[in-house]
Every structure is written in C-alpha cells, then in structure tokens.
Amino acid sequence: MFSTTSRYHGIETTRLTRPDGREIAYARRRFLPPGPPATVGTEHTVTQGERLDNITARHLGDPERFWQICDANEAMRPAELTVGPGRRLVIPLPQGGI
C-alpha cells in the first residue's frame, strides 16, 4: 500500500465499516520508534530559512524521507525542527531504499 520510503511502510492496515455499510481502509496509528535514537550519521545546524525537505534531500538523498530526521530528533511535528536558526539536528544513517 505504501512505498518502501514511506514512514507508513510495514504498518498494518485495517478497515472500518460505517453505519451505512461503507468500508473505509486505513493505516493503523504509527508511534515514534521506542528506545535510543537512530544511529547518528552526522549532525546539521539549521540556518535561517532552511526547510526540512531540503535538509533531508542533502543528507539522505530523498526529501520524502524527512520523517527519518523527525524520528531521530523525537519530533512529532516536522516544522518544529526548522522553526529558527541554530537548532542542531541529528541526521540518521540512511535506512532502506537508498
């Protein structure tokens, strides 16, 4: 259902049957991985105006893998990682698909 680069790859899907009989397929909730942060590949210091997709493309080779940086920095909201300059981000080693 999801590409191998998606944060939802491997997440179980299920169905909800509505009162009118329609079925809706959905992915189960995804939680941040438990335990220690990902293996650090490098670190990145955010500069003014940087976007997470550009940082991710530079370090992981694919802007859609931004979620791996979110997981490594225990961030549920991607925008909070680049809200201001000076934040040091953990950049994990690339995972699968690269």
Rank of each mutant, 00 (worst) to 15 (best):
F2E: 14
S3N: 13
T5M: 11
S6V: 09
S6Q: 11
H9Y: 15
I11P: 06
T14D: 14
T14C: 10
T14N: 09
R15E: 14
L16G: 09
T17Y: 09
R18V: 07
G21I: 14
I24G: 02
A27N: 07
R30N: 12
R30F: 10
R30S: 07
P33D: 14
P34S: 13
P37G: 08
P37M: 07
T39V: 14
T39S: 13
G41I: 08
G41S: 14
T42W: 11
V46A: 04
V46E: 01
G49A: 14
E50A: 05
E50Q: 14
R51N: 06
R51E: 08
R51I: 11
L52Y: 01
L52A: 01
I55M: 06
T56G: 04
A57R: 03
R58I: 06
R58G: 08
H59E: 02
G61F: 06
D62G: 05
E64V: 07
E64Y: 09
R65A: 05
F66T: 02
W67G: 01
W67S: 04
W67P: 03
Q68K: 06
Q68F: 06
I69A: 02
A72K: 01
E74T: 05
M76A: 11
R77S: 01
P78Y: 01
L81A: 02
T82K: 00
P85V: 03
R87H: 07
L89T: 02
L89V: 00
L89C: 06
I91F: 02
I91N: 02
P92Y: 01
P94D: 11
